[in-house]
Nucleic acid binder design. Structure first.
Lengths: 185, 185
DNA sequence: GCTAACATGTAATCCGTTACATGATTAT
DNA sequence: ATAATCATGTAACGGATTACATGTTAGC
């Protein structure tokens, strides 16, 4: 529950979809756009062990013949911990420093929480972004003039990324509210 | 030169602008959009020590009265190391896993390399992105259908981010080639 | 006199990287 | 047979987080 790595949550989320082995997870991290995470055995297997020690996943040996293979599933407690992490309030700090975590939290929303929670998340995100952006724009306006071109362009890109994220959250919200009538939080 | 943290490079880049103390750096990381980096003393001071041990920066005590304050400057060797890191070829792995590093490398380009290097970097980046995106789009097309809405939206955001980066690199390139005639690599 | 800001550090701990190690099965 | 892939781990190391520790100076 407490001080977990994002990798741990990524793993826990993936295990909600279907039971998987460490090797399965490695392949996912190696071959898909989820590959922002490490596919190295030195990251995955210790992460699985930690999750198991915390009681968030349970591993089970498959096929006693030859090739041993342990597949993992989340426990009830693991599901609870994931959902708690995923649906907790979005802080200013999340927006400034952990946008990637936010996207991971959202990516699994329909599977491990609910469309209603997805809507709540998107509204929360949009609100956080609207609060954050004025100070960013202000910094840009105050400093852009005396910055060299490369620095200015990099900074503008940073601001633009947040604007894009806000636009994305609005489009996403529209898809949820149009498609389904689901409104209860 | 070898196995350095991004924080180390961020620090080294900032020290190129003017001499700064650990505390100065902390303030920058705490109060500006460079704040993706840690402003904790437990990150900054060890990073400065490592840079000093590598001979990349030199610290000097200021104002012997009361409040001690050490300001750091990059050495010739530190400047070389930074420039090498900054201008090295962009790999597929950089594009898949280290986009933030790429932006940091670019942000200091005018100050620590040259506009010509900036142009070279942007062209290299655009080429890398054009190569990378087909497989991303392909994955999206192949999987989007059977993904839940939240997952699909997150994935689309990922693809869109790369498209935005490509657009940004082209706009940035245009600003370099329009503004100055600087063409030699 | 007290608080906030200035200023620099260390220690415990955790996690990821890199490299190493081992062995089974499938395809050529 | 032998290479590739399946499959799981460990050990050394490095760097970041968190919390602690210490002392100075300026402003109210």
């Amino acid at each position: 529950m407490a001080r977990d790595s994002i990798l741990g949550y990524a793993v826990l989320g993936l295990l909600h979809q279907e039971e998987r082995s460490g090797y399965d997870l490695r392949k996912i991290f190696a071959n898909t756009p989820m590959g922002t995470f490490s596919d190295s055995p030195g990251a995955i297997y210790p992460a699985l062990r930690r999750l198991e020690e915390q009681g968030f996943v349970r591993g089970q040996l498959q096929a006693s013949s030859g090739r041993r293979r342990r597949v993992f599933r989340p426990t009830a407690s693991g599901k609870r911990a994931f959902r708690t992490w995923q649906t907790k309030a979005i802080t200013a700090d999340d927006i400034m420093h952990r946008v990637d975590d936010l996207m991971l939290r959202f990516a699994f929303m329909d599977e491990t929480a609910s469309p209603a929670q997805a809507v709540r998340f998107l509204r929360d995100l949009a609100r956080g972004l609207r609060r954050h952006m004025p100070s960013l724009r202000q910094f840009l306006q105050a400093n852009a003039r005396r910055m060299p071109l490369s620095g200015r362009l990099a900074l503008e890109k940073g601001v633009r990324d947040y604007e894009e994220l806000l636009r994305w959250s609005r489009r996403a919200l529209a898809k949820y509210t149009k498609k389904k009538g689901g409104r209860r939080t």
